[in-house]
């Protein structure tokens, strides 16, 4: 079965997932600098979905044995201190070995990163506008940032197959996750759920990664986060901020906005703040505009 072998390849890959090349040198620079501010540290980690996931994994691992799940870096930095979190980030970024570039890559990593960041920032801004309490805002950010994390193993462990997947999505004009199921027998939501399980990220982050397309099937306690991330994902695709491979994203039913009590038109007001956040990140990483 192609599906089974794909699943095995994806599982294998998850264990050694590398950070995005965009941020690695910045992580080294920020973490090696003794004058790094907590804000710089937070920013450099939260700009990289893979690194963020791995740092959260370590923080929540049995290593620290913290009673409650920590889904926010702000909290982790205050609880464990700048030095500890710096060490976590440094070791995560340094230990990662880059996979070779020889394989075909369907996904452009820079585009993926922008899309993820946009979804994270948008999810947080929507939550803020809706009056979600401030201590939960970072969870919305993390869930948005990591929602497509499952695409990384598909893109890298199944590189050639994933190029075909994209061609199928293009040919049949379907959303990427539909084409993934057709060609690979597993989609990025399945892969995202596998990562969340491997990294011990249960709760909202895991649910958003798994159900951001199939939100109507999800009735769990993190429904608010899942729906918000679905909206943020829709917004990032609609505005073309970054590109995570989905040329034909599903339309969002109006009930989603109704349930969130958030007017669709209010998305227009997010344009300025979202762009400002992404610009800040670009300046921080010194990327080309």
């Amino acid at each position: 079965m192609a599906g089974t072998s794909n699943l095995l390849k994806v599982r294998d890959y998850i264990g050694s997932m590398p950070s995005l090349p965009t941020t690695v040198s910045k992580v080294l620079e920020v973490c090696n600098n003794p004058k790094t501010s907590p804000m710089d540290l937070d920013r450099v980690i939260s700009l990289d979905p893979v690194l963020m996931g791995k740092v959260l994994k370590l923080i929540n691992s049995a290593y620290y044995g913290l009673g409650t799940q920590v889904t926010s870096l702000v909290r982790a930095i205050i609880m464990l201190g700048v030095n500890t979190v710096k060490n976590l980030a440094l070791s995560t970024a340094v230990l990662d070995k880059f996979t070779s570039n020889k394989n075909f890559r369907a996904l452009n990593m820079e585009g993926f990163w922008r899309h993820s960041l946009c979804a994270g920032v948008t999810a947080k801004l929507i939550a803020k506008k809706r009056g979600v309490e401030s201590k939960a805002l970072e969870e919305y950010f993390a869930a948005g940032l990591l929602h497509d994390i499952g695409k990384i193993p598909l893109n890298n462990a199944l590189a050639e197959e994933y190029v075909r997947t994209m061609a199928v999505a293009d040919r049949d004009r379907v959303s990427l996750h539909v084409a993934e199921k057709r060609t690979l027998e597993l989609d990025h939501a399945d892969a995202g759920a596998l990562i969340a399980a491997a990294w011990h990220l249960d709760g909202a982050i895991s649910d958003a990664a798994r159900y951001h397309h199939a939100f109507s099937e999800y009735q769990g306690e993190n429904r608010d986060v899942v729906l918000t991330v679905a909206v943020a994902n829709y917004y990032a695709s609609r505005e073309g901020i970054g590109f995570s491979g989905n040329l034909y994203p599903d339309k969002l039913p109006p009930e989603v906005f109704e349930e969130l009590k958030f007017r669709k038109e209010a998305l227009e007001e997010l344009e300025g703040p979202v762009n400002a956040e992404i610009d800040k990140a670009k300046v921080f990483l010194r990327l080309a505009q």
Binding site: M39, D42, S72, V74, R75, I78, M79, K124, K128, S134, K135, L137, E138
Partner: peptide
């Protein structure tokens, strides 16, 4: 950043 400031206070 307002939300960081506030969350930091709470934590």
């Amino acid at each position: 950043d307002e939300s960081y400031a506030r969350e930091g206070e709470e934590a």
